[in-house]
Simulated scan of single mutants.
Amino acid sequence: MLVALDIDGTLLSYDQELSQEVQDAVGDLRAQGHHVVLASGRSVVAMTGVAEVLGIDRGWVVASNGAVTVRLDPGAADGYVVEEVVTFDPGPALRLLHEHLPDARYAVEEVGVGFRVTEAFPEGELGGTLRVVPFDELWTHEVTRVVVRAPESTSADFHELVEHLGLDDVTYAVGWTAWMDLAPLGVTKATALEQVRRALHVQPHRTVAIGDGHNDVEMLEWAARGVAMGHADAAVQAAADEVTGSIADDGAAAVLRSLVTAR
């Protein structure tokens, strides 16, 4: 099987804790020969530590909501090899957004390094090295991901703004209340996972995915068995085939254990 796992709110609690049950189940799945693929909105540099805790030192990782795909390789200089990077010109979207959200914090990803940011983000929200630059230096070249952080905005505000501005040349995902990601048009966790599935020669009916956020919807629809976490909102749960317990109940562990016993 190919088992795709979101990280934050699915494997990791809001306190950034990873249960022993999840760690053991992931280890058992891999011991049986299954492919456990971490798929997150995080940058790759913010995912390698989670992979290490899970004991995953080889295999595929989907980062930046599908814009970056890497293969873990302990022999590589950074512990991974970049297999695919999908980029876009962030300038038009950034300029439009800035007109309506002038006080928001903006960031663009630098793959394998960190982010260029307009001002410091709260510690732990973005992985890697953060480099503060003037706003107009965010679009000096194409990027994989744009992050917009506007604490005064709600999820509904973000959705309404995107529709109003007509940002139809990017893919967007609204995270928690103050957060929105922009990615290249048509790029999601699902598009990257489909390429990984083909590379691993896993049959479509042998795919499983677990997630809790709006950026997981396409992934849950893509998987033969898409599982939403119990705390996910109605739209995410509607995209899934089933719903497990919440992060507080360690819901992902129950699903992973069922895969171990099912073989």
Rank of each mutant, 00 (worst) to 15 (best):
A4K: 15
I7V: 15
L11A: 05
L11P: 05
L12C: 13
L12R: 11
S13D: 12
Q16D: 14
S19K: 12
Q20S: 13
V22M: 05
D24E: 14
D28L: 14
L29P: 02
A31R: 15
G33P: 08
H34P: 06
H34C: 08
V36E: 00
L38W: 09
A39N: 08
S40M: 10
V44T: 13
V44Q: 13
M47K: 04
V53E: 15
L54W: 03
L54F: 04
I56K: 08
V61Y: 09
S64L: 00
T69N: 01
V70P: 07
V70C: 02
R71F: 02
L72I: 03
P74L: 10
P74T: 07
G75N: 11
G75T: 10
A76I: 02
V82E: 13
E83G: 00
V85L: 10
T87P: 01
F88E: 06
D89M: 02
D89Y: 01
A93V: 08
A93H: 06
L94D: 01
H98F: 00
P102K: 12
Y106R: 09
V108N: 04
V108R: 03
E109A: 01
E110S: 06
V111T: 13
R116T: 00
R116E: 10
R116A: 02
A120N: 02
F121M: 11
F121E: 11
P122L: 08
P122F: 02
E123V: 05
G127T: 06
R131G: 00
V132D: 04
V132W: 02
V132A: 11
V133N: 05
P134L: 10
D136Q: 05
D136E: 14
E142F: 06
E152T: 13
T154E: 09
D157M: 10
F158V: 07
H159Y: 15
G166E: 04
D168Q: 12
D168G: 07
D169L: 01
A173M: 01
G175K: 11
W176H: 09
A178P: 03
L182I: 10
A183N: 11
L185T: 03
G186S: 07
V187G: 02
E194Q: 15
Q195W: 08
V196M: 09
R197M: 11
A199P: 00
L200S: 07
L200N: 09
L200Q: 10
V202Y: 09
P204F: 06
R206A: 15
R206L: 14
V208E: 08
V208A: 04
G211R: 12
G213Y: 05
N215L: 15
M219E: 06
L220Y: 02
L220K: 07
A223I: 14
G226S: 03
V227Y: 09
G230R: 07
H231D: 13
H231E: 14
A232N: 00
D233H: 08
A234S: 12
A234C: 00
A238Q: 15
A239P: 00
A240T: 02
D241F: 02
L256N: 11
R257T: 05
S258E: 09
R263T: 11
R263K: 09
